[in-house]
Amino acid sequence: MNSLVVFESQFGNTEQVAQAIARGLRERGRAQVVAVDEAPAALADDLDLLVIGGPTHAFAMSRPDSRAAALSDGADATETGEREWLRTLPSPLPVPRVVTFSTRQGHSFLTGSAAKSAAKALRSHESVAAEVVDFFVAGKHGPLEEGELVRATEWGRHLVEA
């Protein structure tokens, strides 16, 4: 299985999750991890799985203004986020399987989810997210809640088996 994990990370938590997912994927295949601002505009023809993840900002994927606010709060914000990168992809997506993940504070559905927002954005590419998963941070800057990196690695293993 050939996988590409594309992530957006402001405080490093989402990147940690992306790397953990890739560890699980690599147990039975290949997985490349790429920051969204370095992600390819054209997806490889031999790609079996695309994993897209980012932090939840204001109930959804980040926007330029939410990244600017994170930057003023000490984040390593990028100019391009997963929202903008998704817009550059072709329709339909040339990948048989796509999944989304996000990091977010709080376990309530009221906090929103960048993963759900990304899954919704995939519909404009005539694609449906096969799975949507949230990973949890203890605070705005993190750290990740206990056990989340283990859960991310296990999810990566699951994605290969599914």
Rank of each mutant, 00 (worst) to 15 (best):
R67D: 05
A69P: 01
G81M: 03
V34I: 15
A31F: 06
V17A: 10
R63Q: 12
T88V: 00
S72A: 15
A60V: 02
Q19H: 09
R30Y: 03
S91H: 06
T14Y: 12
S72G: 13
L50P: 11
A41R: 15
R67I: 00
L43F: 06
D46I: 04
A75F: 08
L47S: 14
G53W: 00
P92T: 05
A60W: 02
L86F: 03
E27D: 12
G29Q: 11
V36G: 07
L71R: 14
G74E: 08
T88D: 09
G29S: 11
L89R: 13
A77H: 01
A70F: 00
E27H: 06
L25N: 05
R63N: 04
T80Y: 06
L25P: 12
L47N: 09
Q32A: 15
G24S: 03
P90W: 00
A58W: 12
H57T: 07
D76S: 08
L47V: 07
F59K: 02
R63W: 06
A77I: 06
L89E: 11
S91M: 01
T78E: 08
D37E: 15
S66L: 12
I52G: 01
V17I: 15
T14E: 11
I52Q: 00
T78G: 03
P90C: 00
R23L: 12
G74H: 07
V17S: 07
A77S: 07
V36A: 03
L71F: 04
